[in-house]
Design a protein around this nucleic acid. Structure first.
Lengths: 112, 112
DNA sequence: TATTGTGCTACAGATACTGTAGCATGCTCT
DNA sequence: AGAGCATGCTACAGTATCTGTAGCACAATA
């Protein structure tokens, strides 16, 4: 699967709109999970594998390459970590944690 | 693929944490794309197919079922539309549009 | 009755992901 | 030097997921 670069045709859109490249990227299995788990701080490859519970090393490496190529994460001496762009992305995504809790509660009510 | 319900084990996590169910859900191909395209207002099945450019009807229907089951979208007389929960979700996701534009610009600079 | 538009399904082929094993490299510690 | 251990990462077979084309069943309209 090719890396979804803004300006180019991506999976799901031929327009090259940045949002479509981003949606393609974070719509891939585990991409958001990896970013989410890097919130806790830098992690080595094997640490990340553990944080992500069930990810296969093959896929982890593929996603890491993509995220690196797009400057969302970078590999430093302490391990993989978010770049400043990655940081600003996660600040947007962060409220999802709170939202998901409310959502879970409402689903519980609606089903009872 | 089973529907990722908060409280249950999902793809990528055994803990049942709501955020993990949500990340599983929106990490599936096209899930975010569908939600994003419903911003513009309600759409019939075939309208949605067109907005999503290249989605297969099989997958579109699968995703719609999941999103319906989780009360993020609903089917009304005018077509599929976001529920109030879906609306609040998209308000969180909305800033991604702006972020992606900045990101695209920075990628352009960094590669030149 | 024929046409057009719905929502949706079947199914074969292509693509993406998992899980296990293990390689190559660089440490540290006898 | 040699043995252990941890690192990032790869190979590959098996499985799950997605695409693309065709078309069904139903309803409204002409």
């Amino acid at each position: 699967m090719s890396i979804p670069q803004p300006g180019k045709q991506v999976r799901g859109s031929k327009t090259g709109k940045p949002i479509m490249a981003l949606l393609d990227l974070i719509g891939r299995t585990w991409a958001l999970g990896i970013i989410w788990n890097l919130q806790q701080g830098a992690a080595t490859f094997r640490e990340l594998q553990q944080r992500c519970e069930q990810i296969s090393p093959t896929l982890l490496n593929t996603r890491l390459k993509e995220l690196k190529a797009l400057h969302i994460i970078e590999l430093k001496e302490t391990g993989y970590q978010l770049t400043s762009q990655g940081q600003s992305l996660i600040e947007i995504i962060f409220p999802l944690g709170q939202w998901s809790i409310q959502w879970a509660n409402e689903l519980k009510e609606q089903s009872s």
